Simulated scan of single mutants.
Amino acid sequence: MNFLLQLSRLIDRINEAVGRAAIWLILVVVLISAGNAVSRFAFNMSSNAMLEVQWYLFSAIFLACAAYVLKKNEHIRIDVIAGRFSERAQNWIDVFGILVFLLPMAVLIAYLSWPVFMNAWHSGEVSANAGGLIRWPVRLLLPLGFALLILQAVSELIKRVAFLAGIAPNPLKKAAGPSAEEELAAEIRKHQVAPEVADIVHMNHEMIENPQGEQK
């Protein structure tokens, strides 16, 4: 079990690094989107390549961060029933869900998406849009993203089994700390990159937390 826990920590570090790197893609997408909007409405110019870059980066963010979100235990849960159970029961539910639903689904999608990437790679598939981009990089995102998700599912399974065996803390307890939006805003401010973007991210977080404008 000690070896498995070490493996779990290694997987966690990989997906933590990937997730934190993907956070910066959000800023890149915002800047590209703003540039596309300005060039279209101010100069009556547009680029299919730049539009497709947005889609590629959005896909990269979604797929690369899926495992990161699972690691952070921030994926959507319906806790109306499970929230009433004991910590052990909740972990048993997760073990069942990982083994019966998450892992089979992720393995199947990774398996089926690999030939699609290989076909795009060998054929040199290019977007049908004029001036569009080559397609194999975005095709590769699907098997890579689900491969990371499979690894993280294995890590989460190890952590839950270790907790049930009484040799590790409860992995369902969320660590106290800043939200993902606050982390992104802090990183942008720390590097002094587009502070106005950081303010927008922070403002959006406050609107989500306090949608009616109530005083805290």
Rank of each mutant, 00 (worst) to 15 (best):
Y68P: 11
V69H: 09
A168M: 00
C65G: 04
A22G: 11
I98G: 07
R135L: 11
G177V: 06
D94C: 04
I11G: 13
I76G: 06
N15Q: 12
Q54N: 02
G83Q: 08
E181H: 08
N204S: 06
D199Q: 10
F41S: 08
Y56G: 06
S123A: 11
H202W: 07
A106P: 12
V197I: 13
S8I: 00
V201A: 02
A34T: 15
G124E: 06
R84H: 15
M207R: 04
I32F: 03
S155Q: 01
N210K: 05
S86I: 03
W136D: 13
V193W: 08
L10S: 12
N91D: 15
K174W: 01
R135S: 08
S46M: 03
Q54Y: 00
S127W: 11
G83W: 11
I14T: 15
I167L: 02
R40H: 10
L112R: 01
I11L: 12
E187W: 11
L27R: 02
L31R: 02
F163R: 00
I61F: 00
A67T: 08
P195A: 03
L164Y: 09
L102V: 14
L157D: 07
L99W: 15
A42V: 13
P143M: 04
N73Q: 13
E209F: 00
G97P: 09
A64W: 07
A49H: 03
E187Y: 10
A186L: 05
L31I: 14
K174D: 11
F3T: 13
G35I: 08
R40T: 09
M207H: 02
A67P: 05
Q215K: 04
I200E: 11
M1Q: 09
L172C: 07
A176V: 08
W55C: 00
V18H: 05
V38Y: 05
D12I: 02
S123N: 10
S59N: 06
A168R: 00
S47T: 08
H191L: 10
N73E: 15
N129E: 14
L27A: 12
L25A: 13
A130W: 09
S127R: 04
L57E: 00
G132Y: 07
G131E: 13
H191M: 10
L157G: 14
A120G: 02
E156S: 06
H75K: 09
Q6G: 12
S8Q: 14
L99I: 15
G213T: 00
E209I: 00
G35F: 10
M105S: 07
K71P: 11
E16W: 14
F101A: 09
S113M: 07
A89N: 13
F41N: 09
G177Q: 03
L140I: 03
N204K: 03
F101T: 08
S39Q: 09
L25N: 09
G166C: 02
D12A: 14
L142E: 06
K173A: 07
V107I: 12
F62A: 04
M1K: 01
E206R: 03
A168V: 05
F3E: 10
V18N: 09
I81E: 14
F62S: 02
I14R: 00
A147P: 10
V107S: 05
H202K: 03
